[in-house]
Amino acid sequence: MQQRDKYRLALLAACAIALHGFERLIPTPIPWLRFGFANIITLITLILYGFNAALTITLIRILIGSMLTGTFLGPPFIMSLVGGIFSIAAMWAASRVRVFGPLGLSLTGALFHNLGQILAVYAVFIQNLRSVMILTPVILFIGTLTGVLNGLAVIFTMEHLKKMSDNVQNSQ
């Protein structure tokens, strides 16, 4: 990895933390409804720099983010960690198939992020299969909707970046 890439990753991680923090300010009608805006950054990083970079900035985001919010090593931290790893792995696998655009990847990421979190909750914290079974579809449904939102944001950003780089190339 080049030095310049390192700076970019640090910048992206900072963006992710900022979005993550910003997201907490948005009031949601349902307590466990989260937009997962940080996934926008994760997905962009995955597309631009690959799996390792995406994993790196996610880990940084979760680590720093949890320290900022005071949940380090607490239940939300474990949930973010498992969810984050699951979604990156899934998005990476989906990107290898090469039939999905950013929207599909974002949906996959959202789906597996939620699945990972539910699994973590079930395995580690509460073993009430009944409530998990009832809540899972609701969480996944809402996750799909926010996944669409994030996917469109990624497309928007990517198009924008493309235009910018086109402009840069044209002007050169």
């Binding site: 990895m1 390792n52 970079a53 994993l55 790196t56 880990l59 090593l73 239940p75 474990i78 960690l81 498992v82 790893i85 973590a120 395995a123 580690v124 914290f125 509460i126 073993q127």
Partner: peptide, 29 residues
Amino acid sequence: KPKLLTAAAIVFIIALVFVFKSTVSGTPH
């Protein structure tokens, strides 16, 4: 190196989950 980081992260998570499973899962019914 990112690869090393990945491996370390995975080991860390697995260890953490096991630690929590044995301690926090103290919600026996």
